[in-house]
Design a protein around this nucleic acid. Structure first.
Ligand SMILES: [Mn+2]
Ligand SMILES: [Mn+2]
Ligand SMILES: [Mn+2]
Ligand SMILES: [Mn+2]
Lengths: 147, 147
DNA sequence: TACATAATGTAGCTTTGGCTACACTTTGGC
DNA sequence: GCCAAAGTGTAGCCAAAGCTACATTATGTA
C-alpha cells in the first residue's frame, strides 16, 4: 500500500547498511560493560594488589550494588571468579579480554592526542569510542600515530 | 578498612577521571537512540516524503514494536509528534537534533575515509563513534579531513 | 464496493543496568 | 578481645530497549 509520494530521489544511505551498522553498534554496547569491568579489575589488581567491590564502584562511577549484579553476570559468562567477601579475580578469558581492551584503549587515546586533542578530553572520548573501533580502524589509528 | 597490600605503585589512570569518563559515556548512550531516530526520520522525510513506522523499523534494524515504544518516549521528550496511523514528524527541537547528528555523522565518516578506511567500514564504525565525539574532537576530525 | 493484506497498535515478556534502603560480615584500633 | 565503621550482600524499585503474539485499522485492487 502507500507507495512513495514522490520519486524518492536519493536514498541518503541504503537502509540495509544503516540497519546493519546499528545492529553492530548494539552488539558493541552489549559487550561494553564486560570490557570496562575487565580492564578495571586488571588495573586494580596491578596497582593495588587486588580488586575489591568498593574500588570497582569508585572506578566505574556506580554504586557497589550495580557492581555486584554485574559481577554475577560476568561470572556466569566465565570472565571473573567471585566469592563472597573476597577479592575479585579474572579468569584466563577475562585476562585476555582485559589485555585486548587495555591495548585498544591506549591506541585510541594516543591517536586522539596525536591529533592535538588534550589529554583529558582524549581520555573522556576514548572511553566511549574504544568500543566502536573495528580492527581495521584500530590499525589505521596506530599507523597514523606512529607515522 | 584494608589498606593497600603493597605500595600501590602507579594508579594507571586516576579513578576519578575514569569514573567521570564512564559517566559521560553512559550519558551519551542515553541520548544515542534519540539521535539515531531523529536522523533517520529526517532522512526518510527527505527521501520518501514522509517517515512511517515500518520504514523506521527497516532502517533501524528493529521491529515495529520497538519503534512504536521509542517514538512514545521521544514524543514525551518533545522531539517528535506522532498520531495513530499517521506519518511521523519531527518537532523543531527534533529537526535541530537531526541536523546536528547528520553533520556529526558526515564529519566522522569523512574523517575515517580520509584515513584510508573503506567506505563500508567507515559507515559501520561511525554509527557508534559519532555519539562519543566531543566538540573539540569533532573539530580536530574536520580539520584533519580538510588539511 | 469488498476484502485481502499491509501497516499499525497493544499486551506482556525478557535482560541490562541504574538506584535506595537495609542487613550482615570483616577488620583495624583501642 | 571488643566493637564501630567499612565493606559487602540482598530485596525490591525503575527505565530503556529488545522481542513474540495477537488485535485493529487503512487501502489498493479486483
Ligand atoms: Mn570504555
Ligand atoms: Mn577503557
Ligand atoms: Mn549512530
Ligand atoms: Mn557507544
Amino acid at each position: 500500500m502507500k507507495k512513495a509520494l514522490r520519486s524518492s530521489p536519493k536514498p541518503v544511505r541504503p537502509s540495509a547498511l544503516q540497519a546493519e551498522s546499528l545492529r553492530q553498534t548494539r552488539r558493541e554496547h552489549a559487550a561494553e560493560t564486560a570490557e570496562d569491568y575487565a580492564e578495571a579489575i586488571a588495573d586494580l589488581a596491578a596497582s593495588q594488589g587486588e580488586a575489591r567491590v568498593v574500588d570497582l564502584a569508585r572506578r566505574l562511577g556506580v554504586t557497589h550494588v550495580t557492581v555486584n549484579r554485574t559481577l554475577a553476570r560476568l561470572q556466569r559468562e566465565g570472565l571473573v571468579s567471585v566469592q563472597p567477601y573476597r577479592a575479585i579475580f579474572l579468569t584466563p578469558a577475562g585476562r585476555k579480554l582485559a589485555e585486548e581492551c587495555h591495548h585498544r584503549h591506549s591506541v585510541v587515546v594516543d591517536f586522539l592526542k596525536s591529533l592535538g586533542i588534550p589529554e583529558k578530553t582524549a581520555e573522556i572520548d576514548a572511553e566511549g569510542i574504544e568500543h566502536h573501533v573495528s580492527p581495521g580502524t584500530l590499525a589505521a589509528f596506530a599507523k597514523y600515530t606512529n607515522r
